[in-house]
Nucleic acid binder design. Structure first.
Length: 385
RNA sequence: GGGGGAGUCGCAUAGCGGCAAUUGCAACAGACUGUAAAUCUGUCCUCUUCGGAGUUCAGUGGUUCGAGUCCACUCUCCCCCA
């Protein structure tokens, strides 16, 4: 795997590059759709490829380990083959589940024991085990096992948690170096910066990670309850320290505005459940703001979704990115009637929009006009239509 | 014509002397950030300065300190027998 930095914006720290992997190139900045259990919910692989043009998707170590389990994944020849996806895959390590499933787990120095949300059985995730599982999954990018610390954690806990994450990282690296990929393609290991909302901790963590990173770094533990401005500060601070010649991945973020602000600060990669989950819950993201398609006002709106999306600045892009004949009234009806198609269409529309957004950001960076463009886009993106 | 049953906030339901009244659906909003989410939350008689206030349980009258609940009559609907 190699990262080719192609351009930096004239008026900001935004970067454009290409991440080369054995499963193909990933232009950056990039957004990665989340497919936790081997499925980007409600979206076919061919739609991800052809309609959305997703370049890389996520899987989750914890969830895939529980189901379908390692035997199935190994026998299938890895996750790529199992799900029929030939482009790159990144797997989260289960570090986020340490946070989101906090009621069902216990952390120790050795690792984290989860009580399965499926059948209640207990499973110890150690850094070594998490590396082994990701080898079996065959992700192009493996994530270090970390503790995603709550945004409101006190300083003492945040520091303790960060130091544990650092010790776990060193064990991850050792295990990573002592094992080989199973399916013939290269796998990279991304370490993760923690430190919660405390600037000095973040700095320390970023330095720790920078010393150990070889192919890319991640910033974790953000968008977990802290104010957005704090998140931006932490992102800036981390990007100042992390290696310039490696991609930077801001984990779990975020809203369209979050993406543009973070790109401006030097982030290259993102993932978030927002376009898919919120899509399933009736929220549609557009270049002009978000709409709740369940609201009564769309009942008789016979404009095509294109009309909303097609007004964006770069019309050439807009029309090629959102060619859908569906009217808002129809989507409203489908959502009201609880038709599965509603979830599919909204998920696809949102992912298309997210990929369009980062693709357009990239063009602006290459042209050196990113900062201005971002400034123009922001008020639209944050609008509620 | 005779006998039996039933009318509760859009619909469906609970309620058996202390009730602005249960639950579900529908409706109207809101939330969602490395997915235990096609999920969750709120509002849902009227007004409100969110403390309350005012009108309600087919209608009218009555019993009672107090009635959606008990009694009488009226109206409407359903079932059975002619």
């Amino acid at each position: 795997m190699s990262f080719e930095l192609q351009a930096t914006d004239r008026g900001s720290r935004a970067r454009a590059g290409v991440l080369h992997t054995d499963h193909g190139d990933i232009p950056t900045p990039i957004f990665m759709p989340v497919g936790t259990v081997g499925s980007v919910k409600a979206v076919h692989q061919h739609e991800l490829r052809n309609d959305i043009d997703a370049r890389i998707i996520l899987g989750n170590t914890y969830h895939l380990y529980l189901r379908p389990g390692l035997d199935i994944l190994r026998t299938a020849g890895g996750l790529h083959r199992f799900i029929g996806w030939e482009r790159p895959i990144l797997t989260d390590s289960g570090g986020f589940q340490v946070f989101s499933l906090a009621d069902n787990r216990k952390i120790k120095e050795e690792g984290c024991t989860f009580r399965s949300h499926i059948d209640g059985s207990k499973h110890l995730f150690t850094p070594e085990r998490v590396m082994d599982i990701q080898r079996v999954i065959g992700a192009d990018i493996m994530m270090a096992f970390d503790e995603c610390c709550p945004g409101d954690a006190d300083r003492r806990y945040a520091q303790k948690s960060m130091e544990l994450t650092h010790r776990w990282l060193d064990r991850c690296i050792t295990q990573f170096n002592n094992t080989e990929p199973l399916y013939g393609h290269h796998q990279a290991l991304f370490p993760i910066v923690q430190g919660c909302q405390y600037a000095d901790l973040r700095r320390r963590s970023a330095e720790y990670i920078a010393e150990r990173a070889t192919e890319g770094c991640a910033i974790g533990g953000l968008a977990v309850g802290e104010p957005t401005e704090v998140m931006y500060e932490m992102v800036s601070l981390c990007c100042d320290i992390l290696p310039k010649d490696q991609p930077r991945y801001l984990m779990g973020v975020g809203t369209p505005a979050n993406l543009l602000e973070s790109i401006e600060r030097g982030v290259d990669m993102f993932d978030c459940v927002m376009p898919t989950r919120n899509g399933r819950n009736g929220m549609i993201f557009t270049p002009h703001g978000t709409i709740n398609i369940k609201n009564k006002k769309w009942e008789t709106c016979f404009d095509c979704v294109d009309t909303l999306n097609g007004e964006c600045d770069n019309e050439e892009d807009a029309t090629s990115t959102f060619p859908t004949p569906y009217t808002l009234a129809y989507l409203h009806h489908l959502m009201r009637a609880e038709e599965i198609l509603a979830l599919q269409i909204c998920s696809i529309l949102n992912l298309r929009f997210y990929l369009w957004l980062v693709r357009t950001a990239r063009k602006q960076i290459l042209a050196g006009t990113y900062a201005n463009w971002k400034q123009r886009m922001l008020p639209n993106l944050m609008r509620r239509i």
